[in-house]
Design a protein around this nucleic acid. Structure first.
Length: 797
DNA sequence: AAGTAAATTTTTTTT
DNA sequence: AAATTTACTT
């Protein structure tokens, strides 16, 4: 068993402890995936378990795929009769439900449809409308996330309603939507992402036979990224391991970054209580990064309270300092990154580079800069292939063929391509449907029947179109059956859904570049289907499930030289060189997390994840101005930059930067200010709730913007002159299209003001004119406030 | 009914 | 700035 040789003692301990519950607390880069994969291989090679008796669960398809690959690599050469099941939580649930959901006796059948977030949103919107509620007051987005959060806590709509009776009108409205949403999903034989888990847990809880079956089937269960499990996933694991207790979980509490999806860090912290007699193995040796990078990461994460103490160490030598750059604006930040990548690629062509940002919206400028420099890059996230409208349309036809009660799919394609069934006709069909209380498809069947008795407010032409649509779907359904046992069950039907529904013809008639492009995408979909036919002998059903459960983060290509992605998407990956960009207050940490201590800690863990992705070289950048919603706003450095040890940072900014100011003698002499810069003056209690800029808490430090008379990041040093802000403006007018001349003597973005209640703050944004001027001002300790200039009584500060 | 222009909103993070 | 929704033509 030579594959055990390159494990350290701790890792070996984790691999060999096969019986009973095992918790592996694995720090970043400590060989977590290696432990899981080797453990699987060990179980098989030692014949402790048959391959098919092993279940490994991950969160992403990407992780599952990689794990599968690595297990295969270790075991290559051995003839195996079966394979371990390595799956995501959601695919595992689909697999179980496709077999056994009918045992739940809730009316769901095995041909249920999966609704993705988009589909769910459509149902929510329809519910809000049909209940006569105002979508302005009850944002569908909010409703959806409230419902999802509730579901993930393990509640149903009745529990939600019972927690909300009485005074809270909004909650009561949400409860009504919740109820209707559930009814509609049930009627459509559809499950949303949360339901996949909920129904599986329910099934295992209620039906003894089913629970026994899966308990018997999977004798060894492994869970990756256990710190990201939510209560439902925990329940699932608990039920699946009930009998044998051979559960091995691997995770790192410092990398818990899915709180917004109800992930509960206590699952990992309390593992020993949940599973008595659990053994715990701590992996602290890091094989990925330099000591410098680990020290920086550690300095940042130390600011979180309540975590399992864990100190990573490495045998790797010190390494470079962390490179820092302050840019003038988003474009120059991107240009800097592109240039550095260019240099890096020339010096070390084999090294992989990643650009990590907080939100997907930040990717654009970096894409443009890289394209200008002719650097090939790969981008993870954003638009996925399966999210394209034309692909979703065709998939909707296929879903409809498998489950015609799927109302969302039906409404998507009933008039796509246009068949003369406009709003009026669709409203009438909806009216009859809600009167009958059936699915839309059944209404269509009824009213297109020549013997239909009821009143139909449809024009003969519309009714005729409807008959045509019915025809199309029924033909497609026939094809699914006909090709089921052929050797191309998927691609034949996919092709039919494109050609025989009038979809392709309609695109061809358009005769535009755009339409051509869409046709090409559909060709790609057919290709994917052909692939699918040749690889697995799974049917159309699996193909559709795959499309629903595969996400954009799954398309990471390890061979790409340069990858752009969010920090979330980067979890579990590693790169020689990492750029963490947009380290600004309000971006990273995100503005929505800044006023909540818990969420701020999650942002900090996110920063920790980002830093620890780097093997050799780490760049951190921020910009002093940033476009948000199309408007330029002043931006302050992220508090996470403050938390990094200044002596480990090398400033690459040309001219003065926030960092050079932070280190300047003037500040160093003022010990208090220096400490403030490092965030060390906060009272312990205020610490975790503190939301302002730490260096701003001392007046001397706040002078920063004023004092750096030598100009912006881009301007080489000059003699002291006008204020920094004026310099910035001057620079702006030279470098780019002349900005509209702002009114003089007013509170412009970038100036500090004084407010009677909130004290000193920085103007971020100014909108409107005359008496209607609205200002967005950031007050340390109070967060961002929107003020009407006329009434706010601000003074220059 | 369908296409276009105007207005409005949007950004966390993801299975 | 871009995308989505609504209002308004034809």
């Amino acid at each position: 068993m030579e594959f055990l040789n390159d494990l350290n003692e701790r890792q070996l301990e984790a691999v060999k402890h096969t019986e009973g519950p095992l918790l592996v607390l694995a720090g970043a880069g400590s060989g977590k995936t290696r432990v899981i994969t080797v453990r699987i291989a060990y179980l098989i090679a030692k014949e402790i378990a048959q391959p098919h008796e092993i279940l490994a669960v991950t969160f992403t398809n990407k992780a599952a795929g990689e794990m599968r690959e690595r297990v295969n690599a270790i075991l290559k050469g051995r003839k195996l009769i079966s394979a371990p099941l390595i799956s995501t939580f959601h695919s595992l649930c689909v697999r179980i439900l496709r077999r056994d959901i009918e045992a739940l006796e809730e009316g769901y059948t095995r041909s249920f449809t999966i609704y993705d977030t988009d589909d769910s949103m459509k149902v929510i919107k329809a519910c809000i409308k049909d209940l006569g509620l105002d979508p302005k007051q009850l944002a569908p987005r909010q409703v959806l996330s409230a419902i999802s959060a509730s579901k993930n806590r393990g509640e149903d709509h009745e529990m939600f309603a019972s927690r909300s009776d009485g005074y809270n009108e909004k909650r009561a409205s949400i409860a009504r939507v919740f109820k209707m949403y559930e009814e509609r999903l049930a009627r459509a034989n559809a499950l949303d992402f949360d339901d996949l888990l909920i129904k599986t847990v329910k099934l295992l809880r209620k039906v003894r036979d089913v629970r026994d079956k899966y308990n018997g089937r999977y004798r060894y269960i492994l869970v990756d990224e256990y710190q990201d499990t939510n209560p439902l996933q925990f329940a699932l694991v608990k039920y699946l391991t009930e009998k044998q207790q051979n559960i091995c979980v691997v995770g790192d509490d410092a990398q818990s970054i899915y709180g917004f999806r109800m992930a509960d860090i206590r699952n990992i912290l309390d593992f020993e209580q949940h599973f008595p007699n659990a053994k715990t193995v701590l992996l602290e040796q890091n094989y990925r990064s330099t000591q410098t990078i680990l020290d920086v990461a550690d300095a940042v994460i130390k600011n979180n309270l309540g975590r399992k103490e864990k100190k990573l160490w490495t045998e790797n030598r010190g390494g470079d300092r962390v490179f820092y750059y302050q840019a003038f604006d988003g474009d120059s930040e991107a240009r800097f990154v592109a240039e550095k990548i260019y240099d890096q690629r020339r010096m070390n062509p084999r090294d992989k580079v990643a650009v990590l940002y907080r939100t997907n919206a930040q990717s654009r400028v970096f894409e443009e800069a890289l394209r200008k420099m002719r650097i090939d890059y790969n981008i993870v996230g954003g638009f996925s292939f399966y999210e394209r409208a034309e692909v979703k349309d065709v998939i909707a036809y296929l879903k409809l063929a498998l489950n015609p009660d799927d109302d969302v799919a039906l409404s998507r394609v009933i008039n796509t391509p246009p068949r003369g069934l406009g709003k009026t006709s669709l409203d009438e069909i909806a009216r009859i449907t809600s009167k009958r209380g059936t699915s839309t498809w059944e209404t269509i069947l009824a009213i297109t029947d020549d013997n239909y008795e009821g009143k139909i407010g449809l024009t003969p032409r519309a009714l005729n179109s409807l008959k045509g649509f019915r025809e199309i779907i029924e033909t497609l359904r026939g094809k699914v059956k006909r090709y089921e046992d052929s050797d191309r069950p998927v691609s034949n039907v996919v092709a039919a859904a494109i050609e025989n529904t009038g979809y392709a013809d309609s695109l061809r008639r358009e005769n535009s570049d755009e339409a051509d492009n869409r046709l090409q995408n559909l060709e790609e979909l057919v290709n994917a289907a052909v692939d699918y036919d040749s690889q697995d002998d799974n049917g159309l059903r699996d193909f559709i499930d795959h499309a629903a459960l595969t996400s954009d983060t799954d398309k990471f290509d390890r061979s790409a030289d340069v990858t752009l992605m969010t920090v979330h998407a980067a979890k579990g990956l590693e790169f020689s060189t990492v750029f963490i960009v947009g380290l600004e207050d309000g971006i990273f940490p995100h503005a929505r997390s800044i006023n909540d201590a818990q969420e701020l800690e999650e942002e900090r863990r996110l920063a920790y994840v980002a830093i620890t992705r780097a093997e050799k070289t780490l760049f951190v950048t921020h910009s002093t101005r940033r476009r948000v919603y199309g408007e330029e706003m002043a931006a302050e450095p992220s508090q996470f930059l403050n938390e990094m040890p200044l002596e480990m940072i090398e400033d690459l900014t040309r001219g003065n930067s926030w960092l050079s100011f932070a280190r300047s003698d003037a500040v160093k002499e003022n010990i208090y200010a220096a400490k403030a810069l490092r965030g060390e003056t906060e009272k312990p209690k205020a610490r975790s709730t503190y939301s302002g800029k730490t260096y701003d808490s001392k007046e001397a430090v706040a002078e920063f913007f004023k004092n750096r008379g030598s100009g912006s990041a881009e301007t080489p040093s000059e003699k002291k002159g006008p204020s920094g802000i004026e310099k910035l403006k001057e620079f702006a007018s030279k470098d780019r299209k002349p900005a509209p001349e702002p009114p003089k003597g007013k509170f412009l973005p970038g100036v500090h003001v004084k407010h009677s209640k909130y004290g000193r703050g920085l103007v971020l944004r100014r909108e409107g004119s005359g008496d209607n001027v609205k200002l967005t001002v950031s007050f340390p300790g109070y967060g961002q406030k929107k003020l009407i200039e006329k009434y706010a009584n601000l003074e220059p500060a």
